[in-house]
Design a protein around this nucleic acid. Sequence first.
DNA 1: TAGAGATAAATTGTATACAGTCGACGAAAT
DNA 2: ATTTCGTCGACTGTATACAATTTATCTCTA
Lengths: 222, 222
Amino acid sequence: MQIVKKRATLKTQVYDYLKESIIMGGLKPGERLIEEKISEELQVSRSPIREAIRMLEKDGLLLVNSSGGVTVVEPSIQDFQHLYECRVEMEPLAAFYAAERRTQEQIELIRINLLQIGKILETNDIKKVHDANVNFHETIISASANPFLVSMISHLRGVNSFYRKSIIEENPLHIEHAMHDHQQIFQAIVHQEPEKARQLMKAHIESDYIQFMKLSSKSRED
Amino acid sequence: MQIVKKRATLKTQVYDYLKESIIMGGLKPGERLIEEKISEELQVSRSPIREAIRMLEKDGLLLVNSSGGVTVVEPSIQDFQHLYECRVEMEPLAAFYAAERRTQEQIELIRINLLQIGKILETNDIKKVHDANVNFHETIISASANPFLVSMISHLRGVNSFYRKSIIEENPLHIEHAMHDHQQIFQAIVHQEPEKARQLMKAHIESDYIQFMKLSSKSRED
DNA sequence: TAGAGATAAATTGTATACAGTCGACGAAAT
DNA sequence: ATTTCGTCGACTGTATACAATTTATCTCTA
Protein backbone atom coordinates (compact mmCIF):
# COMPACT_ATOMS: atom_id res chain seq x y z
CA MET A 1 0.00 0.00 0.00
CA GLN A 2 1.28 3.40 -0.94
CA ILE A 3 1.24 5.77 2.01
CA VAL A 4 2.01 9.05 0.30
CA LYS A 5 -0.60 9.93 -2.24
CA LYS A 6 0.75 10.31 -5.75
CA ARG A 7 0.54 13.96 -6.71
CA ALA A 8 -2.50 14.21 -8.93
CA THR A 9 -1.72 15.46 -12.39
CA LEU A 10 -3.75 18.29 -13.85
CA LYS A 11 -5.33 16.09 -16.48
CA THR A 12 -6.63 13.82 -13.73
CA GLN A 13 -7.99 16.72 -11.74
CA VAL A 14 -9.64 18.22 -14.80
CA TYR A 15 -11.09 14.83 -15.65
CA ASP A 16 -12.55 14.43 -12.18
CA TYR A 17 -13.87 17.97 -12.19
CA LEU A 18 -15.62 17.64 -15.53
CA LYS A 19 -17.00 14.20 -14.73
CA GLU A 20 -18.41 15.48 -11.48
CA SER A 21 -19.88 18.49 -13.24
CA ILE A 22 -21.58 16.33 -15.82
CA ILE A 23 -22.98 13.83 -13.36
CA MET A 24 -24.07 16.43 -10.86
CA GLY A 25 -25.66 18.52 -13.55
CA GLY A 26 -23.44 21.56 -13.52
CA LEU A 27 -22.90 20.78 -17.16
CA LYS A 28 -26.25 20.06 -18.73
CA PRO A 29 -26.98 17.42 -21.36
CA GLY A 30 -26.44 18.89 -24.80
CA GLU A 31 -24.26 21.69 -23.50
CA ARG A 32 -21.13 22.37 -25.49
CA LEU A 33 -17.73 22.44 -23.82
CA ILE A 34 -15.27 25.10 -24.94
CA GLU A 35 -11.68 24.24 -24.13
CA GLU A 36 -10.68 27.87 -23.80
CA LYS A 37 -13.50 28.56 -21.33
CA ILE A 38 -12.55 25.65 -19.11
CA SER A 39 -8.95 26.72 -19.40
CA GLU A 40 -9.79 30.18 -18.06
CA GLU A 41 -12.12 28.88 -15.41
CA LEU A 42 -9.63 26.42 -13.97
CA GLN A 43 -6.51 28.44 -14.78
CA VAL A 44 -5.00 25.50 -16.61
CA SER A 45 -3.66 25.24 -20.13
CA ARG A 46 -5.60 23.43 -22.83
CA SER A 47 -3.27 20.42 -22.99
CA PRO A 48 -4.49 18.61 -19.88
CA ILE A 49 -8.04 19.65 -20.70
CA ARG A 50 -7.92 18.01 -24.08
CA GLU A 51 -6.63 14.78 -22.57
CA ALA A 52 -9.40 14.80 -19.99
CA ILE A 53 -11.93 15.33 -22.77
CA ARG A 54 -10.64 12.32 -24.72
CA MET A 55 -11.12 10.19 -21.61
CA LEU A 56 -14.65 11.42 -20.96
CA GLU A 57 -15.43 10.79 -24.57
CA LYS A 58 -14.42 7.15 -24.09
CA ASP A 59 -16.51 7.07 -20.92
CA GLY A 60 -19.52 7.90 -23.03
CA LEU A 61 -20.18 11.14 -21.16
CA LEU A 62 -19.09 13.47 -23.94
CA LEU A 63 -19.98 13.34 -27.59
CA VAL A 64 -17.85 14.72 -30.40
CA ASN A 65 -19.85 16.12 -33.26
CA SER A 66 -18.57 15.85 -36.78
CA SER A 67 -16.84 19.22 -36.73
CA GLY A 68 -14.83 18.66 -33.60
CA GLY A 69 -16.88 20.32 -30.89
CA VAL A 70 -17.79 18.25 -27.85
CA THR A 71 -21.10 18.25 -26.03
CA VAL A 72 -22.49 16.50 -22.98
CA VAL A 73 -24.47 13.44 -24.06
CA GLU A 74 -28.25 13.68 -23.99
CA PRO A 75 -29.53 10.21 -23.20
CA SER A 76 -32.89 9.47 -24.75
CA ILE A 77 -35.55 7.18 -23.32
CA GLN A 78 -34.28 4.62 -25.79
CA ASP A 79 -30.79 4.97 -24.40
CA PHE A 80 -32.07 4.22 -20.94
CA GLN A 81 -33.86 1.20 -22.26
CA HIS A 82 -30.62 -0.03 -23.81
CA LEU A 83 -28.79 0.76 -20.63
CA TYR A 84 -31.16 -1.37 -18.61
CA GLU A 85 -30.97 -4.20 -21.08
CA CYS A 86 -27.32 -4.36 -20.10
CA ARG A 87 -27.60 -3.63 -16.40
CA VAL A 88 -30.29 -6.24 -15.94
CA GLU A 89 -27.82 -8.91 -17.03
CA MET A 90 -24.57 -7.56 -15.73
CA GLU A 91 -25.35 -6.51 -12.20
CA PRO A 92 -26.90 -9.90 -11.46
CA LEU A 93 -23.74 -11.45 -12.88
CA ALA A 94 -21.71 -9.32 -10.51
CA ALA A 95 -23.91 -10.46 -7.63
CA PHE A 96 -23.31 -14.05 -8.70
CA TYR A 97 -19.55 -13.76 -8.50
CA ALA A 98 -19.75 -11.58 -5.42
CA ALA A 99 -21.52 -14.42 -3.66
CA GLU A 100 -18.71 -16.73 -4.69
CA ARG A 101 -15.77 -14.49 -3.97
CA ARG A 102 -16.68 -11.90 -1.37
CA THR A 103 -14.17 -11.44 1.44
CA GLN A 104 -15.07 -11.09 5.07
CA GLU A 105 -14.23 -7.39 4.94
CA GLN A 106 -16.62 -6.88 2.06
CA ILE A 107 -19.40 -8.55 3.98
CA GLU A 108 -18.73 -6.16 6.82
CA LEU A 109 -18.77 -3.21 4.45
CA ILE A 110 -22.18 -4.19 3.16
CA ARG A 111 -23.51 -4.89 6.62
CA ILE A 112 -22.44 -1.46 7.78
CA ASN A 113 -23.92 0.08 4.66
CA LEU A 114 -27.29 -1.52 5.33
CA LEU A 115 -27.30 -0.33 8.92
CA GLN A 116 -26.46 3.17 7.73
CA ILE A 117 -29.29 3.20 5.23
CA GLY A 118 -31.66 2.24 8.01
CA LYS A 119 -30.56 5.20 10.09
CA ILE A 120 -30.47 7.63 7.21
CA LEU A 121 -34.00 6.66 6.19
CA GLU A 122 -35.32 8.15 9.41
CA THR A 123 -33.67 11.49 8.68
CA ASN A 124 -35.38 11.70 5.28
CA ASP A 125 -32.20 13.01 3.68
CA ILE A 126 -32.84 11.86 0.12
CA LYS A 127 -29.37 12.65 -1.14
CA LYS A 128 -27.72 10.53 1.53
CA VAL A 129 -30.08 7.64 0.99
CA HIS A 130 -29.28 7.75 -2.67
CA ASP A 131 -25.53 7.81 -2.04
CA ALA A 132 -25.80 4.89 0.34
CA ASN A 133 -27.77 2.92 -2.23
CA VAL A 134 -25.15 3.56 -4.85
CA ASN A 135 -22.58 2.48 -2.33
CA PHE A 136 -24.39 -0.80 -1.74
CA HIS A 137 -24.36 -1.65 -5.42
CA GLU A 138 -20.76 -0.61 -5.89
CA THR A 139 -19.53 -2.71 -3.04
CA ILE A 140 -21.18 -5.78 -4.53
CA ILE A 141 -19.84 -5.05 -7.96
CA SER A 142 -16.32 -4.72 -6.71
CA ALA A 143 -16.76 -7.91 -4.66
CA SER A 144 -17.29 -9.74 -7.94
CA ALA A 145 -13.53 -9.37 -8.29
CA ASN A 146 -13.78 -9.19 -12.04
CA PRO A 147 -12.14 -6.00 -13.32
CA PHE A 148 -13.93 -6.08 -16.65
CA LEU A 149 -17.28 -6.39 -14.98
CA VAL A 150 -16.37 -3.60 -12.60
CA SER A 151 -15.31 -1.26 -15.37
CA MET A 152 -18.24 -2.00 -17.64
CA ILE A 153 -20.86 -1.62 -14.96
CA SER A 154 -19.35 1.57 -13.64
CA HIS A 155 -19.46 2.85 -17.19
CA LEU A 156 -23.16 2.02 -17.35
CA ARG A 157 -23.82 3.54 -13.97
CA GLY A 158 -22.00 6.70 -15.01
CA VAL A 159 -24.37 7.31 -17.86
CA ASN A 160 -27.22 6.05 -15.77
CA SER A 161 -26.64 8.77 -13.24
CA PHE A 162 -28.17 11.23 -15.67
CA TYR A 163 -31.56 10.12 -14.57
CA ARG A 164 -30.66 9.08 -11.05
CA LYS A 165 -30.96 12.69 -10.00
CA SER A 166 -34.59 12.48 -11.00
CA ILE A 167 -37.57 11.66 -8.84
CA ILE A 168 -37.26 7.93 -8.93
CA GLU A 169 -35.09 7.60 -5.89
CA GLU A 170 -37.26 10.05 -4.05
CA ASN A 171 -40.22 7.79 -4.21
CA PRO A 172 -40.48 6.60 -0.58
CA LEU A 173 -42.29 3.41 -1.45
CA HIS A 174 -39.57 2.53 -3.89
CA ILE A 175 -36.93 3.11 -1.26
CA GLU A 176 -38.64 0.82 1.24
CA HIS A 177 -38.92 -1.80 -1.43
CA ALA A 178 -35.28 -1.43 -2.40
CA MET A 179 -34.21 -1.81 1.22
CA HIS A 180 -36.00 -5.12 1.42
CA ASP A 181 -34.34 -6.31 -1.80
CA HIS A 182 -30.95 -5.25 -0.52
CA GLN A 183 -31.35 -7.24 2.65
CA GLN A 184 -32.20 -10.37 0.73
CA ILE A 185 -29.34 -9.95 -1.71
CA PHE A 186 -27.00 -9.43 1.19
CA GLN A 187 -28.11 -12.68 2.79
CA ALA A 188 -27.54 -14.62 -0.42
CA ILE A 189 -24.04 -13.19 -0.66
CA VAL A 190 -23.25 -13.94 2.96
CA HIS A 191 -24.38 -17.54 2.52
CA GLN A 192 -22.52 -17.86 -0.76
CA GLU A 193 -25.55 -18.69 -2.88
CA PRO A 194 -24.48 -17.31 -6.28
CA GLU A 195 -27.54 -18.32 -8.27
CA LYS A 196 -29.90 -16.91 -5.67
CA ALA A 197 -27.94 -13.68 -5.47
CA ARG A 198 -28.12 -13.38 -9.21
CA GLN A 199 -31.85 -13.84 -9.37
CA LEU A 200 -32.57 -11.48 -6.53
CA MET A 201 -30.41 -8.82 -8.10
CA LYS A 202 -32.10 -9.34 -11.42
CA ALA A 203 -35.53 -8.84 -9.88
CA HIS A 204 -34.21 -5.78 -8.09
CA ILE A 205 -32.88 -4.12 -11.23
CA GLU A 206 -36.01 -5.06 -13.12
CA SER A 207 -38.21 -3.38 -10.57
CA ASP A 208 -35.99 -0.33 -10.81
CA TYR A 209 -36.46 -0.37 -14.56
CA ILE A 210 -40.23 -0.70 -14.36
CA GLN A 211 -40.28 2.18 -11.90
CA PHE A 212 -38.25 4.25 -14.31
CA MET A 213 -40.46 3.46 -17.28
CA LYS A 214 -43.58 4.36 -15.33
CA LEU A 215 -42.19 7.71 -14.34
CA SER A 216 -40.82 8.53 -17.75
CA SER A 217 -44.10 7.69 -19.47
CA LYS A 218 -45.93 9.80 -16.91
CA SER A 219 -43.61 12.75 -17.49
CA ARG A 220 -44.22 12.50 -21.20
CA GLU A 221 -47.95 12.79 -20.63
CA ASP A 222 -47.47 16.04 -18.74
CA MET B 1 -25.46 8.85 -43.77
CA GLN B 2 -22.40 10.92 -44.37
CA ILE B 3 -20.92 10.23 -47.78
CA VAL B 4 -17.67 12.15 -47.64
CA LYS B 5 -15.41 10.76 -44.98
CA LYS B 6 -14.56 13.30 -42.32
CA ARG B 7 -10.92 14.21 -42.72
CA ALA B 8 -9.17 12.08 -40.18
CA THR B 9 -7.39 14.08 -37.50
CA LEU B 10 -3.91 13.06 -36.52
CA LYS B 11 -5.02 11.92 -33.09
CA THR B 12 -7.47 9.53 -34.75
CA GLN B 13 -4.85 8.21 -37.12
CA VAL B 14 -2.36 7.74 -34.32
CA TYR B 15 -5.03 6.02 -32.26
CA ASP B 16 -5.85 3.63 -35.08
CA TYR B 17 -2.20 2.98 -35.76
CA LEU B 18 -1.34 2.20 -32.15
CA LYS B 19 -4.43 0.08 -31.65
CA GLU B 20 -3.64 -1.93 -34.73
CA SER B 21 -0.04 -2.33 -33.60
CA ILE B 22 -1.08 -3.58 -30.21
CA ILE B 23 -3.68 -6.01 -31.50
CA MET B 24 -1.53 -7.28 -34.33
CA GLY B 25 1.43 -7.71 -32.06
CA GLY B 26 3.77 -5.06 -33.43
CA LEU B 27 3.74 -3.68 -29.92
CA LYS B 28 4.22 -6.55 -27.52
CA PRO B 29 2.51 -6.95 -24.15
CA GLY B 30 4.55 -5.25 -21.46
CA GLU B 31 6.36 -3.06 -23.96
CA ARG B 32 6.72 0.57 -22.98
CA LEU B 33 5.58 3.33 -25.31
CA ILE B 34 7.78 6.39 -25.57
CA GLU B 35 5.92 9.44 -26.86
CA GLU B 36 9.02 10.90 -28.40
CA LYS B 37 9.80 7.69 -30.30
CA ILE B 38 6.31 7.46 -31.75
CA SER B 39 6.53 11.13 -32.56
CA GLU B 40 9.68 10.57 -34.61
CA GLU B 41 8.42 7.40 -36.21
CA LEU B 42 5.16 8.94 -37.40
CA GLN B 43 6.51 12.44 -37.88
CA VAL B 44 3.80 13.88 -35.68
CA SER B 45 4.06 16.06 -32.61
CA ARG B 46 3.43 14.67 -29.15
CA SER B 47 0.06 16.41 -28.68
CA PRO B 48 -2.08 14.08 -30.79
CA ILE B 49 -0.06 11.12 -29.55
CA ARG B 50 -0.87 11.89 -25.96
CA GLU B 51 -4.57 12.15 -26.76
CA ALA B 52 -4.48 8.82 -28.54
CA ILE B 53 -2.75 7.28 -25.54
CA ARG B 54 -5.45 8.52 -23.18
CA MET B 55 -8.06 6.85 -25.38
CA LEU B 56 -6.20 3.54 -25.56
CA GLU B 57 -5.79 3.70 -21.83
CA LYS B 58 -9.57 3.88 -21.48
CA ASP B 59 -9.87 1.02 -23.97
CA GLY B 60 -7.90 -1.10 -21.56
CA LEU B 61 -5.11 -1.68 -24.06
CA LEU B 62 -2.54 0.51 -22.36
CA LEU B 63 -1.62 0.69 -18.73
CA VAL B 64 -0.14 3.71 -16.96
CA ASN B 65 2.30 2.85 -14.24
CA SER B 66 2.53 5.01 -11.17
CA SER B 67 5.31 7.16 -12.55
CA GLY B 68 3.58 8.12 -15.75
CA GLY B 69 5.01 5.71 -18.31
CA VAL B 70 2.55 3.67 -20.34
CA THR B 71 2.95 0.03 -21.33
CA VAL B 72 0.93 -2.42 -23.37
CA VAL B 73 -1.25 -4.54 -21.08
CA GLU B 74 -0.15 -8.09 -20.41
CA PRO B 75 -3.30 -10.10 -19.92
CA SER B 76 -2.88 -12.97 -17.51
CA ILE B 77 -4.74 -16.27 -17.65
CA GLN B 78 -6.90 -14.82 -14.89
CA ASP B 79 -7.70 -11.85 -17.07
CA PHE B 80 -8.89 -14.14 -19.81
CA GLN B 81 -11.03 -16.00 -17.34
CA HIS B 82 -12.61 -12.72 -16.26
CA LEU B 83 -13.01 -11.77 -19.87
CA TYR B 84 -14.91 -14.93 -20.62
CA GLU B 85 -17.07 -14.54 -17.56
CA CYS B 86 -18.33 -11.40 -19.27
CA ARG B 87 -18.41 -12.58 -22.85
CA VAL B 88 -20.34 -15.68 -21.94
CA GLU B 89 -23.19 -13.52 -20.71
CA MET B 90 -23.00 -10.60 -23.05
CA GLU B 91 -22.63 -12.14 -26.46
CA PRO B 92 -25.63 -14.39 -25.83
CA LEU B 93 -27.51 -11.28 -24.79
CA ALA B 94 -26.52 -9.67 -28.07
CA ALA B 95 -27.74 -12.75 -29.93
CA PHE B 96 -31.03 -12.50 -28.05
CA TYR B 97 -31.68 -8.95 -29.18
CA ALA B 98 -30.29 -9.63 -32.61
CA ALA B 99 -32.96 -12.31 -33.06
CA GLU B 100 -35.59 -9.75 -32.08
CA ARG B 101 -34.35 -6.81 -34.05
CA ARG B 102 -32.27 -7.94 -37.01
CA THR B 103 -33.07 -6.31 -40.31
CA GLN B 104 -33.36 -8.13 -43.60
CA GLU B 105 -30.02 -6.67 -44.70
CA GLN B 106 -28.32 -8.02 -41.62
CA ILE B 107 -29.67 -11.47 -42.31
CA GLU B 108 -28.23 -11.23 -45.78
CA LEU B 109 -24.87 -10.10 -44.39
CA ILE B 110 -24.71 -13.12 -42.14
CA ARG B 111 -25.85 -15.46 -44.87
CA ILE B 112 -23.11 -14.21 -47.17
CA ASN B 113 -20.60 -14.45 -44.37
CA LEU B 114 -21.46 -18.10 -43.75
CA LEU B 115 -21.16 -18.91 -47.44
CA GLN B 116 -17.79 -17.18 -47.51
CA ILE B 117 -16.50 -19.14 -44.57
CA GLY B 118 -17.50 -22.34 -46.32
CA LYS B 119 -15.46 -21.39 -49.36
CA ILE B 120 -12.50 -20.07 -47.41
CA LEU B 121 -12.35 -23.26 -45.37
CA GLU B 122 -11.38 -25.15 -48.49
CA THR B 123 -8.44 -22.84 -49.14
CA ASN B 124 -7.05 -23.43 -45.64
CA ASP B 125 -6.22 -19.76 -45.24
CA ILE B 126 -6.32 -19.53 -41.45
CA LYS B 127 -6.11 -15.77 -41.30
CA LYS B 128 -9.12 -15.35 -43.56
CA VAL B 129 -11.17 -17.91 -41.69
CA HIS B 130 -10.41 -16.08 -38.51
CA ASP B 131 -11.39 -12.72 -39.96
CA ALA B 132 -14.63 -14.17 -41.27
CA ASN B 133 -15.43 -15.63 -37.86
CA VAL B 134 -14.84 -12.30 -36.22
CA ASN B 135 -17.07 -10.77 -38.84
CA PHE B 136 -19.86 -13.19 -38.03
CA HIS B 137 -19.81 -12.28 -34.37
CA GLU B 138 -19.58 -8.58 -35.05
CA THR B 139 -22.54 -8.59 -37.39
CA ILE B 140 -24.69 -10.24 -34.76
CA ILE B 141 -23.52 -7.88 -32.06
CA SER B 142 -24.35 -4.86 -34.15
CA ALA B 143 -27.72 -6.42 -35.04
CA SER B 144 -28.58 -6.29 -31.34
CA ALA B 145 -29.05 -2.57 -31.98
CA ASN B 146 -27.95 -1.73 -28.46
CA PRO B 147 -25.07 0.73 -28.56
CA PHE B 148 -23.95 -0.03 -25.01
CA LEU B 149 -23.82 -3.71 -25.73
CA VAL B 150 -21.94 -3.05 -28.94
CA SER B 151 -19.36 -0.86 -27.27
CA MET B 152 -18.84 -3.12 -24.28
CA ILE B 153 -18.46 -6.28 -26.28
CA SER B 154 -16.11 -4.68 -28.77
CA HIS B 155 -14.07 -3.55 -25.78
CA LEU B 156 -13.93 -7.14 -24.56
CA ARG B 157 -13.11 -8.45 -28.00
CA GLY B 158 -10.31 -5.91 -28.32
CA VAL B 159 -8.51 -7.23 -25.28
CA ASN B 160 -9.49 -10.73 -26.23
CA SER B 161 -7.62 -10.39 -29.50
CA PHE B 162 -4.38 -10.74 -27.58
CA TYR B 163 -4.89 -14.45 -27.55
CA ARG B 164 -6.86 -14.74 -30.77
CA LYS B 165 -3.61 -14.75 -32.67
CA SER B 166 -2.75 -17.95 -30.86
CA ILE B 167 -3.32 -21.46 -31.98
CA ILE B 168 -6.89 -21.80 -30.89
CA GLU B 169 -8.45 -20.69 -34.12
CA GLU B 170 -6.02 -22.81 -36.04
CA ASN B 171 -7.40 -25.95 -34.56
CA PRO B 172 -9.25 -27.45 -37.55
CA LEU B 173 -11.65 -29.46 -35.45
CA HIS B 174 -12.58 -26.36 -33.55
CA ILE B 175 -13.25 -24.52 -36.78
CA GLU B 176 -15.58 -27.23 -38.07
CA HIS B 177 -17.39 -27.17 -34.78
CA ALA B 178 -17.67 -23.41 -34.79
CA MET B 179 -19.12 -23.49 -38.29
CA HIS B 180 -21.87 -25.79 -37.12
CA ASP B 181 -22.66 -23.53 -34.17
CA HIS B 182 -22.75 -20.51 -36.43
CA GLN B 183 -25.27 -22.14 -38.74
CA GLN B 184 -27.59 -22.93 -35.86
CA ILE B 185 -27.31 -19.48 -34.36
CA PHE B 186 -28.06 -18.00 -37.75
CA GLN B 187 -31.22 -20.06 -38.05
CA ALA B 188 -32.45 -18.95 -34.64
CA ILE B 189 -31.88 -15.34 -35.62
CA VAL B 190 -33.61 -15.74 -38.97
CA HIS B 191 -36.63 -17.29 -37.29
CA GLN B 192 -36.63 -14.68 -34.54
CA GLU B 193 -36.21 -17.06 -31.67
CA PRO B 194 -34.39 -14.87 -29.12
CA GLU B 195 -34.15 -17.36 -26.29
CA LYS B 196 -32.87 -20.07 -28.56
CA ALA B 197 -30.31 -17.73 -30.12
CA ARG B 198 -29.14 -16.78 -26.68
CA GLN B 199 -28.64 -20.34 -25.54
CA LEU B 200 -26.89 -21.41 -28.70
CA MET B 201 -24.53 -18.48 -28.49
CA LYS B 202 -23.86 -19.23 -24.86
CA ALA B 203 -22.91 -22.79 -25.65
CA HIS B 204 -20.77 -21.54 -28.49
CA ILE B 205 -18.78 -19.11 -26.35
CA GLU B 206 -18.49 -21.67 -23.60
CA SER B 207 -16.96 -24.19 -25.96
CA ASP B 208 -14.56 -21.50 -27.10
CA TYR B 209 -13.63 -20.90 -23.50
CA ILE B 210 -13.07 -24.57 -22.75
CA GLN B 211 -10.92 -24.80 -25.83
CA PHE B 212 -8.88 -21.86 -24.64
CA MET B 213 -8.43 -23.23 -21.14
CA LYS B 214 -7.29 -26.59 -22.52
CA LEU B 215 -4.69 -24.96 -24.70
CA SER B 216 -3.46 -22.57 -22.06
CA SER B 217 -3.06 -25.33 -19.47
CA LYS B 218 -1.24 -27.41 -22.05
CA SER B 219 1.13 -24.55 -22.85
CA ARG B 220 1.88 -24.13 -19.18
CA GLU B 221 2.91 -27.78 -18.97
CA ASP B 222 5.45 -27.32 -21.75
C1' DT C 1 -36.51 40.09 -47.94
C1' DA C 2 -34.00 35.88 -48.94
C1' DG C 3 -29.83 34.10 -50.45
C1' DA C 4 -24.93 33.97 -51.78
C1' DG C 5 -20.40 35.32 -50.83
C1' DA C 6 -16.99 37.38 -48.37
C1' DT C 7 -14.90 38.52 -44.00
C1' DA C 8 -14.00 38.28 -39.33
C1' DA C 9 -14.32 35.86 -34.91
C1' DA C 10 -14.30 31.79 -32.33
C1' DT C 11 -12.67 27.35 -31.66
C1' DT C 12 -10.23 23.22 -32.44
C1' DG C 13 -5.87 20.86 -34.22
C1' DT C 14 -0.91 20.53 -34.03
C1' DA C 15 3.77 21.86 -33.03
C1' DT C 16 7.15 23.38 -29.98
C1' DA C 17 9.32 25.00 -25.82
C1' DC C 18 10.30 24.50 -21.28
C1' DA C 19 9.70 22.75 -16.53
C1' DG C 20 9.49 18.86 -13.48
C1' DT C 21 10.38 14.06 -12.28
C1' DC C 22 12.27 9.54 -12.27
C1' DG C 23 16.18 6.34 -12.83
C1' DA C 24 20.64 5.02 -13.99
C1' DC C 25 25.27 5.64 -13.34
C1' DG C 26 29.20 6.82 -10.91
C1' DA C 27 32.08 9.08 -7.40
C1' DA C 28 32.88 9.72 -2.56
C1' DA C 29 32.42 7.99 2.16
C1' DT C 30 32.33 4.29 5.48
C1' DA D 1 32.35 -3.97 -1.07
C1' DT D 2 28.23 -1.46 0.04
C1' DT D 3 25.83 2.53 0.76
C1' DT D 4 24.77 7.30 -0.08
C1' DC D 5 24.52 11.31 -2.72
C1' DG D 6 24.88 13.92 -6.74
C1' DT D 7 24.49 14.60 -11.47
C1' DC D 8 23.04 13.70 -15.98
C1' DG D 9 19.95 11.97 -19.40
C1' DA D 10 15.56 10.47 -20.76
C1' DC D 11 10.75 11.12 -20.30
C1' DT D 12 6.48 12.96 -19.13
C1' DG D 13 3.53 17.10 -17.79
C1' DT D 14 2.07 21.66 -18.91
C1' DA D 15 2.04 26.01 -21.26
C1' DT D 16 2.05 28.64 -25.26
C1' DA D 17 2.17 29.80 -30.07
C1' DC D 18 0.48 29.23 -34.44
C1' DA D 19 -2.21 26.91 -38.28
C1' DA D 20 -6.49 25.14 -39.97
C1' DT D 21 -11.48 24.98 -39.62
C1' DT D 22 -15.72 26.01 -38.50
C1' DT D 23 -19.24 29.36 -37.36
C1' DA D 24 -21.10 33.83 -37.06
C1' DT D 25 -21.60 38.35 -39.18
C1' DC D 26 -22.08 41.39 -42.64
C1' DT D 27 -22.82 43.09 -47.12
C1' DC D 28 -24.31 43.00 -51.63
C1' DT D 29 -27.47 41.45 -55.08
C1' DA D 30 -31.58 39.86 -57.24
